[in-house]
């Protein structure tokens, strides 16, 4: 198991390198010259060729492409993503706190999603075809089809404005988490509990369940075996869901004025603030690789067959 973990982690390093390289290449493909962006942001009235050359030299843009990439990569490893072209502040001082806020929202939402999906999925599978199963599936379908921004607005109107129980926006106390987490959880758990349900149903029909029953093993223990096996699929999905939520909270963050990555990235894209966009893409891509590796390791711990794969 230990050697599997080491191998799996080593495999993800070249992947991260490729991602960082692609991020850098794509940013350089942008038709707008970064030097021009910086000069515009500084409010320079007339951009001369001389000024452009000078700014390029300041930003290190006159060096060859590959040298710039390695400079950037080494700096990134030290969490130095350069300075914002617009405000001149270090990128990390802008993106760090925003990332932390989004991470908090993501972690809380993910925990709620995982608990809800497993609970509902298992209950529905074990009570397949009953009123409980049918009503949970029907109701979740109804909720999951609502667009998040609309559901968010409805909830703000009802719980924050009409009943005045929760804050409408910002992140001041634990109460601020309730509405955004609820909206995210409803959207994702409504889909993921179906995955858990169908996986449990598949395993209920497996021979090992029949044999365990035929041997008189208590039903409680059999359920634990089914859970252990059917959650393997769920682990992969949940691990991939976390970076997806991390990258897709833009809408929710805008509705609830959550000071997170989503709002920051939209602002940066509109003002062509390349260093921030680069850091944002890199952090998200790294999160995908990280959680993918994590899901493989958890799955290997749960399923001995997978350990041979690498």
């Amino acid at each position: 198991m230990g050697s599997y973990m080491m191998k799996r982690i080593l495999v993800s390093i070249p992947l991260l390198l490729i991602i960082s390289f692609l991020t850098f290449v794509f940013m350089n493909l942008s038709p707008q010259d970064p030097a021009e962006v910086v000069l515009h942001a500084q409010g320079v009235p007339k951009i001369t060729d001389e000024l452009m050359t000078q700014t390029k030299a300041e930003l290190g843009l006159d060096k060859p492409f590959i040298v710039r990439y390695f400079d950037w990569l080494v700096a990134c490893l030290q969490l130095d993503f350069g300075n914002s072209y617009v405000t001149g502040q270090p990128v990390w001082s802008l993106i760090g706190p925003a990332f932390l806020n989004t991470l908090k929202l993501t972690v809380v939402s993910s925990v709620v999603i995982i608990i809800l999906s497993i609970l509902l999925g298992v209950v529905c599978a074990l009570r397949e075809g009953t009123i409980i199963d049918q009503s949970v599936r029907g109701f979740s379908f109804f909720l999951a089809t609502m667009p998040p921004y609309w559901l968010a607005s409805l909830m703000i109107w009802y719980f924050a404005v009409k009943l005045d129980l929760l804050p409408t926006n910002g992140m001041d106390s634990y109460k601020s988490y309730i509405l955004p987490v609820a909206v995210i959880a409803i959207n994702y758990a409504g889909i993921y509990f179906r995955v858990v349900r169908s996986s449990v149903l598949n395993h209920l029909n497996e021979d090992y369940v029949l044999y365990a029953r035929a041997c008189g093993v208590p039903e409680r223990k059999i359920t634990m075996h089914i859970l252990r096996n059917s959650l393997q699929v769920a682990v992969s999905i949940f691990c991939m869901a976390i970076p997806i939520i991390l990258g897709s909270t833009v809408v929710i963050e805008n509705v609830f004025a959550w000071p997170g990555l989503g709002s920051l990235s939209v602002r940066s894209i509109l003002s062509r603030d390349f260093p921030i966009i680069q850091a944002y893409v890199l952090i998200l891509a790294a999160a995908f690789v990280l959680f993918n590796t994590l899901s493989d390791i958890i799955n290997a711990a749960m399923n001995p067959k997978l350990r041979k794969g690498l």
Partner: peptide, 8 residues
């Protein structure tokens, strides 16, 4: 082959 829990 399928009569025993594959992960135990």
């Amino acid at each position: 082959m399928s009569a025993f829990d594959p992960s135990c």
